[in-house]
Amino acid sequence: MAKTVLILSGSPNPQSRLAGIISHLETTLAARGVDVDHLAAASLPAEDLIFGRFDSPAVQEANARVARADAVIVASPVYKASYTGLLKTFLDLLPQKGLEGKTVLPIMIGGTIAHLLAIEFALKPVLSALGARRFAGEVYALDTQVERKETPGGVIYELQDELRERLDAAAARLAGETADAAVRV
């Protein structure tokens, strides 16, 4: 049975530098035989998120996708020293133990190294409150490590070697821990 990793993006901009990181992770995981699903919180109806509509068909389907995944990558840009409010509104709609039994990999990107601890002090506590206990590390990237280029064929991203190496190592850990968890079940 193939492992499935859901990449949950909290970016309101589908062409942000975070998209370059997500694209790299998708490619890396797919090369390891992992099925990758991608859920952008921005694709969910704003009113459902803001008004906490647990019964919304779109929210229920998004929650079902999280439930089906063996592992979840939670990715967000840093906004005001934390993850985005967009991501928070979706996480608030997950069931109380929505991440229980899943391996989780938090990813954040910010403009300065000063926000490096946003993963530890802002994101991981919320993920833990949702039942996450197995973390496959974490990756914090600087905006300057991802170059976004407009081309006639669309936007392309170039990641610095050091960041690419850290993402590849995190993807390998995630794939390995997900496989180990499947064996324990």
Rank of each mutant, 00 (worst) to 15 (best):
V34W: 01
A181F: 01
I21W: 07
P57R: 06
V185D: 15
M108R: 11
V34R: 01
D35L: 11
S82L: 12
A169G: 09
F90K: 05
A122Q: 13
P95Y: 06
V183L: 05
A129G: 11
A2S: 15
A30Q: 15
G154Q: 08
Q145A: 05
L127S: 04
T144R: 11
A169L: 07
E120W: 12
E120G: 14
F51P: 09
L6F: 08
A170K: 00
G153H: 02
T178L: 00
G52E: 06
T27G: 11
R32V: 06
Q160A: 01
S82H: 13
L174I: 01
R164N: 02
E162W: 02
G111R: 09
A69W: 04
A41V: 12
L99G: 01
E158W: 02
K124W: 06
L8V: 10
S23Q: 15
R164P: 00
N13C: 15
V5L: 10
I7K: 03
G131Y: 03
G176T: 01
F121R: 14
I21E: 08
L91G: 03
A122F: 08
E162P: 00
L91Y: 06
R53K: 11
R32G: 08
E150Y: 04
S11R: 07
F54W: 14
V34A: 03
L6I: 10
E138V: 10
V78D: 07
A81V: 13
G131F: 03
D70E: 08
A31E: 15
L93C: 11
A81Y: 14
L130P: 03
G131D: 02
A19V: 12
V185R: 15
A136L: 08
V146C: 05
E138D: 15
V74D: 06
N63I: 09
P57L: 05
A19T: 12
D161H: 02
T103L: 08
H24N: 10
Q160H: 00
T178E: 00
I73L: 09
T151V: 05
I156H: 01
E162N: 03
L44K: 01
